[in-house]
């Protein structure tokens, strides 16, 4: 026993060093697998508060850029509304008349124009959030911290999009802050091409925050430079969110497949506002999928 104590005292520094290294390695592995709530992360309240204060100051320098991005998004949304509601097409020379359906089965309808029927409820609810911290220089995982948390309805595994395209997926949530794994990470995005080619996989290559790679597109599919790449509804992202446009097509001779270098439509260097997508059907979808995944007895 005495010898043991002497041994510990002699190698005390080495033992302390090893203990601390093991603790840090445990923290690293915990951070990498995206599960569980981390104390050592930017979604904890102290760090989130600091970043929010910093962002409040820097915010004013970026107002011009932010105005531009909001204006373009407004324009895009106006177009989308116009397409859905078939009104508000003043800019076009053709005048469109709202489509109303006469529903004769409803006895109590006084309105001779017919009763407006809701065909489908909105599946997605968008929670706007401000980016208070953002990283692009890490090589495996890049995180974004946003100023909305559990008290605003943000939950783990929700998709995050910007006005221009995909951003990422919520990893940790505290009361007022959430940490998002951005698409600049080694996480695959299920994606498709505008001609309907689905089941493609898009992944980020470290080194550049501007490009991702859509892998293993069969050679018989015609892809031109400038084509868009969208998300599918298979994973956590909503369907038809823009990932980016094809910047370069690399044909690989060996495997008869093409790799598409895709320029991200979201500019991660100047990300200001994002939307957390609350999928109302998400839980149901997950439950059904989990049930079918179980072995049948």
């Amino acid at each position: 026993m005495r010898n043991f104590l002497i041994l510990i005292r002699r190698f005390w520094n080495l033992i302390l060093f090893l203990i601390l290294e093991v603790v840090s390695l445990a923290l690293i592995s915990k951070n990498r697998n995206m599960q569980g709530v981390d104390i050592v992360s930017s979604s904890n309240s102290v760090v989130g508060y600091m970043y929010k204060k910093q962002n409040d100051v820097v915010y004013y320098f970026q107002l011009k850029q932010m105005n531009d991005s909001l204006l373009t998004e407004n324009a895009r949304l106006r177009n989308a509304i116009a397409q859905v509601s078939n009104i508000d097409q003043f800019r076009d020379s053709t005048v469109r008349i709202p489509i109303t359906v006469r529903d004769t089965s409803k006895k109590d309808s006084i309105n001779t124009q017919g009763v407006l029927k809701t065909i489908r409820y909105a599946q997605y609810n968008y929670i706007p959030a401000r980016v208070i911290n953002n990283s692009i220089s890490n090589d495996k995982i890049n995180f974004i911290t946003i100023n909305r948390g559990a008290s605003d309805g943000v939950q783990k595994d929700m998709a995050v999009v910007s006005g221009n395209g995909v951003v990422g997926r919520v990893a940790n949530v505290s009361a007022h802050y959430a940490r998002v794994v951005s698409v600049l990470s080694d996480r695959k995005i299920s994606s498709k091409l505008p001609d309907g080619t689905s089941n493609l996989i898009t992944i980020w290559n470290p080194g550049s925050p501007e490009y991702v790679v859509t892998e293993k597109v069969p050679v018989y599919i015609k892809v031109k430079k400038g084509d868009s790449v969208y998300t599918t509804g298979y994973s956590f992202f909503p369907e038809n969110v823009l990932i980016g446009t094809v910047a370069k097509v690399d044909t690989m001779k060996a495997s008869s497949a093409k790799n598409l270098k895709v320029r991200l439509s979201t500019n991660f260097r100047s990300l200001q506002y994002v939307y957390v997508v609350d999928d109302k059907m998400g839980a149901e979808k997950k439950q059904v999928e989990a049930e079918t995944a179980k072995p049948a007895h």
Binding site: E21, I39, N44
Partner: peptide
């Protein structure tokens, strides 16, 4: 030295979301 460096590393890790890489 070891303890204060670990504290420094963990503080930076919390801000940069790197888990424990800086601490190690």
């Amino acid at each position: 030295l070891l303890i204060s460096s670990f504290t420094m590393g963990v503080t930076i890790d919390a801000f940069m979301d790197t888990g424990g890489i800086h601490a190690a």
